[in-house]
Design a protein around this nucleic acid. Structure first.
Lengths: 105, 105
DNA sequence: CCTGCGGTTCGAAAATTTTCGTACCCCGTC
DNA sequence: GACGGGGTACGAAAATTTTCGAACCGCAGG
């Protein structure tokens, strides 16, 4: 089995988790990057998150469990993209983030 | 001296601190409450934050240092209000919070 | 088939956040 | 002026988050 990645139902995700996930600058910048092309799947190797590979993996998990991203394995590498239904669950939250920390900030 | 409460210049406040402060539901609800009447000073005794008095005091401090609130002592009790220049520093962030957790949610 | 690369998970250690008690302060009241 | 109510600051303990290494897995290439 290609490793089970838990993407919780968004109805289970609480604001605590979302704000908690966004309380880290590197994670915030990942979200901003993904949001800049919401339909694109981005290889996680291209994302600027410091630390060992287990640390990076931990950050993807935090973002996943906050409902912010979808993570898909391609055997040879991981792809991340913005979770498309996030906006529906927490409308406006991402807009607000992008306005504060979007391109050019 | 009536106890020195540190209200940092908003330019010093980072988004990390703001999202961190909002990662706690009780603190979020305080902000929502204060935002419901932004010019009003609310006695902190009326706010629903559980814990001992030092714990409550700690939460005010977190909110203060995130630039979210202004805290004023009246000798006989503390008054809190929304920090008026917060919106200017982090435009849209409060709106987003209120939309998600405002009255009736 | 073996090896290397890119990943996850687990467990432990480190760092940070949260909680509380205690000591202390200010103010109003008796 | 002593007392009590409402607060902050500090220090220690508890809880949570973050980091890392080690063990492991799947796939692509030689």
């Amino acid at each position: 089995m290609p490793v089970q990645l838990s993407h919780p139902p968004l109805t289970d995700v609480q604001l605590d988790a979302v704000y908690g996930a966004l309380a880290d600058r590197h994670r915030r910048l990942v979200v901003v990057r993904l949001a800049s092309s919401p339909d694109e799947e981005v290889p996680c190797t291209t994302l600027d998150v410091p630390g060992s590979k287990s640390t990076r993996s931990y950050h993807w998990k935090v973002l996943r469990e906050a409902g912010l991203i979808v993570q898909r394995s391609t055997g040879t590498g991981m792809l991340l993209r913005l979770r498309p239904d996030f906006e529906e669950r927490f409308p406006g939250l991402l807009d607000s983030l992008l306005r504060l920390e979007g391109p050019g900030r």
